[in-house]
Design a protein around this nucleic acid. Sequence first.
DNA 1: CATGCCTGTGCAATCGATTGCATTGCGCAT
DNA 2: ATGCGCAATGCAATCGATTGCACAGGCATG
Lengths: 356, 356
Amino acid sequence: MEFKAPKKKIQTMADLAREAGVSASTASRALRNSPLISKETIERVQSVAKEHSYRPHLGARNLRLKKNNVIVLVLPFNYAEEEVLGNPYIFKIIGTIGSKLREIGYDLLLSQMDGISEQIDDRYVHAGIAEGAIILGRGDNDPSKLERLVETGIPFVILGPILDNQTYCSVGIDNRASASMAVHHLAKLGRKRIAIVSDNREDPNAESYARFQGYKQALEELGLAYDQNLVGTSTDSGQSGYAAVQQLLCTAPDLDAIFVATSDVVAISVMQALRNAGKKLPEDVAIVGFDNIDLCNFVSPALTSISQRLKDKVASLLVEKLLDQINGKPAESVMLNGTLVVRRSCGSQTDYPLRV
Amino acid sequence: MEFKAPKKKIQTMADLAREAGVSASTASRALRNSPLISKETIERVQSVAKEHSYRPHLGARNLRLKKNNVIVLVLPFNYAEEEVLGNPYIFKIIGTIGSKLREIGYDLLLSQMDGISEQIDDRYVHAGIAEGAIILGRGDNDPSKLERLVETGIPFVILGPILDNQTYCSVGIDNRASASMAVHHLAKLGRKRIAIVSDNREDPNAESYARFQGYKQALEELGLAYDQNLVGTSTDSGQSGYAAVQQLLCTAPDLDAIFVATSDVVAISVMQALRNAGKKLPEDVAIVGFDNIDLCNFVSPALTSISQRLKDKVASLLVEKLLDQINGKPAESVMLNGTLVVRRSCGSQTDYPLRV
DNA sequence: CATGCCTGTGCAATCGATTGCATTGCGCAT
DNA sequence: ATGCGCAATGCAATCGATTGCACAGGCATG
């Protein structure tokens, strides 16, 4: 509350105006280079402002203009908990979204929420704190919550798959096609007993469901039989890869490839578990992960993974679509294709070489 | 701008007051359970408010109260760039800080900045957007910038080491002591040729400098000679571990341990590089990293690392110290001790066992 | 000389919630 | 019956920037 002012306290527009010998309205216009004001006045006001390093109070401006240039970024899961591990991916997206928003003069409010819908409305948008929301994934939320959020008229976009009949805008990758691609690749290497590790949600709206469908679809296209014994279960935590491997080696000891549909972090623990069990990678078992995090390059063997082209594309699209809505334009959902980045866990010889 | 109101539009305090048959001031007091207002009126106003799901406009309230319940979290490096990789650690801290702030009714604004000082002041605090700042590390910033920030009177805390004569509050771990601990542990395993990989900043204020000092101090205490050939250089990126190993194997082919002072991610790539060079881990070379990220458990061999007890301690302290300042209390810097988490990269046999 | 127009500037209202002070009405004591 | 005090409520100012409208002065034109 108590600042030591440099000389005289120029805190408000009125102070500034007094110092420059004009009215507050003139000062305001002068700072914004209004054509209504004479050049001399503009220069004088601006130089006084600079001298006293005056900054307009944005809270007051926002109130008057009914604007605020803030969007809220919602993490539906609790990232303070252990599951953080799963997502260098999300972190990158957050950073990129932040940069994009800054470019266009918006600030980013970070929020962790469980019950998505009402809170965004009550606490941020209707409260005049933010103009819209970017939601990073549906988390465990019932899709109906998002439909209710639509009814409030709040602009928002969500990162995630497109559901049937959804009336809002989402940006996501085509999980089904990406998963299929992974399996096709493994088959091309000659693998016949291709397992999947997935978190196996029943929910047809979950990403893992789409990935699982892609797995089955690929098997069918390849003429391979779907075998329940080749299906392993994991959560999002690194440790859960161990359990999945333990299970799979029991039900299908002859497996020769695993598509870890959950995430790269789980895939890394899967590889570790396989090694502990005496398997040679990639000779005995080939692995494909999901997300293409940077660490894929630095584990042994380097991990083949599906890249979601996150950095530019996803973040820009989220921001762009949200702004369209804020500006009253309709925004349609987008589905991106993943790409497969092949590394040595699939027999590629392209690991970083070390010349000694 | 154009919402479809449920029935009548109750957007402002005045609307609500009209609907409840009272004045705006009474309505305002009623919502806040003022003892000045009769019980019946309070109930009536609150029920009307609930019925129309009225929410006060926080921007207006903040303007009036000269408050805003927002703090800005500053990432001094650009996390949108590749270096993100280095820090699952930072991400966890952000999540935990967010939770702590929410508990006490504060929101968190995320900001990426290069020139720290002026921007925080101009854009956020003096502009009435935020009440204070938590700065996650000094980045490449000149310490004088922070001293200038002190002069503005803005409440802030910084995550990082305590510098000599610094007049603001910082929370950090004792890098020197932690590094020393790592080296002592390696020596206890019988290693004699202990190398260090560090980003080797000249800057005596850098964390890496303190860690390097700890390394030298430990060698001295142990009666081991400091050897320039045992010093490798890395940046923060995973890839840089490869170069460091290449260099070290050339200058000191007889090394039997490496303390990777940069980060665990670099340590993981160091291990990978060593393996590619035909070294057996941990038999030929023992490794200790820094940060104790979750992945330490899931690489092979599991990585021994220094834990910064980040989740609770660091985040709470940052928040607590900042709030003290906002409330006018002085806040003193704190230095925490790291702890060494021993895993198999140092010969421990405590990796996750797999029972098949 | 009077009217009109244009350039610059200031007044006052506005955004929405809060709060010091004034006001009303009622009960109780003198 | 008059006055005092207290409980409830409303009025109006406030936070700080913005903007529609009114107004002053200068110059040119009929």
